[in-house]
Amino acid sequence: MMKKLDILIIVIMLVGAFWTFALNEDNRRPVEQLTPCELVDQTQKADKFVSTDELARKIMSNDPSVILIDLRPQKEFSEYSLPGAINIPIENLLDKKYVDMLNQKTYTNIFFSNSSDLAAKAWMITTRLGYQNNFILQGGLNYWVETILLPKKPDQTAVNADFIRYNFRKAASAYFMGGSVDVGSSSNSSAPKAPIKRRKKEAAGGGCD
């Protein structure tokens, strides 16, 4: 006859084995909340980008719902960044302390780095995790400097809209650089105050269903 201890051990192991067998591994919560198909749908939507002009307006109007997230390393962040930005180096993006900031429905997070590369990666990762309200600064800091801080005067033959935008950028440049500048003809001076139109979110219209 088998020893009682042997029988007990076998019974315990069998209980455990049936337990593991009964669990369906597919039911395990995956890391990514979005399926690849849903991600493609999200990627195709244009409203993941925030233009530099739009961002300048938000900052100048002290929009309290905007959180600027600088994804570059600490060193570059300390040298220069956007006003009010916080630094989350991309390697630390998924640290637990940032989860509440990234996964929320109240604020608008805008990712940026020198170009759009890191921001696009951060957007991809957070979107795949099912986080909402994360956006990419189009063109990154380089484009920010090019368009907002050092705007180029349009040609004389350019359409009026270009001049309006230029004047706004001159004003924004003065705002951010701290200098005084002639904003230009008074007829255009109301342009910077234009309310920000939020694009309506469309339902994902993919062909994956």
Binding site: M2, D6, I10, M13, L14, A17, F21, A22, L23, E25
Partner: peptide, 22 residues
Amino acid sequence: ISDGLFILILTIVAAIAFYAVT
């Protein structure tokens, strides 16, 4: 096969082996 099924098979094999070696 799934990991769960393999563990179950292994455990049954073990139970048989325990009895056989006795």
